[in-house]
Amino acid sequence: MTATDQSVHLATIAARAAADKLATNLVAFDVSEKLAITDIFLVATAANDRQVGAVVEAIEEALHRQNVKRTRIEGDREQRWVLVDFLDLVVHVMQPEERSLYSLERLWADCPRIALDVEETR
């Protein structure tokens, strides 16, 4: 089983919202073969606490316009690594230190990457 077209569509919308708030290093993994609880992990880097919050807010707003609401959020107090669960899509917005330390790309390297068709501003 692979991620649904709808999940890929939502991941692309979320990635565009993150890029609009200057998130970098956007990567999406199809984790549907490994996890029964979600289809896609989207990972983004934000430079500091404030940017993490802005990226998360932008993603939530963009998905809300698609009638998709989060089911839970973790890490929003510290703003170092915020996980936002939208059921078929789980978004990880991380500061560079956390991204490097936890290396989600290495952990999910055996899962297919999803092309996001999103241009990042540098």
Rank of each mutant, 00 (worst) to 15 (best):
D5N: 14
D5T: 12
S7F: 09
L10G: 12
T12L: 05
R16F: 09
A18D: 01
L22T: 13
T24I: 14
T24C: 10
N25D: 15
N25G: 11
N25V: 04
L26Q: 06
L26V: 06
L26C: 04
A28E: 05
K34I: 02
L35Y: 08
A36Q: 11
T38W: 03
D39A: 10
I40P: 09
F41N: 00
V43C: 12
A44N: 10
T45N: 03
A46M: 04
A46Q: 03
N48V: 05
V52W: 06
A54Y: 05
E57N: 13
I59P: 03
I59H: 01
E61V: 04
E61N: 13
A62C: 08
H64L: 14
Q66V: 00
N67L: 13
V68H: 12
K69L: 14
K69M: 11
T71A: 15
I73E: 12
G75Y: 04
D76S: 14
D76G: 08
D76M: 01
D76T: 14
R77P: 08
E78S: 13
E78W: 06
W81G: 08
V82F: 03
V84D: 01
D85W: 00
D85V: 09
D85F: 07
F86T: 09
L89A: 05
V90A: 01
V91D: 02
V91E: 05
V93I: 13
V93M: 00
M94W: 10
M94E: 14
Q95F: 12
P96F: 06
E97I: 03
S103F: 05
L104M: 12
L107M: 11
W108R: 01
P112N: 12
R113K: 15
R113F: 10
R113H: 11
I114F: 02
A115V: 13
D117Q: 09
V118N: 08
V118R: 10
V118G: 01
E120P: 08
R122Q: 15
R122I: 15
R122F: 12
R122W: 15
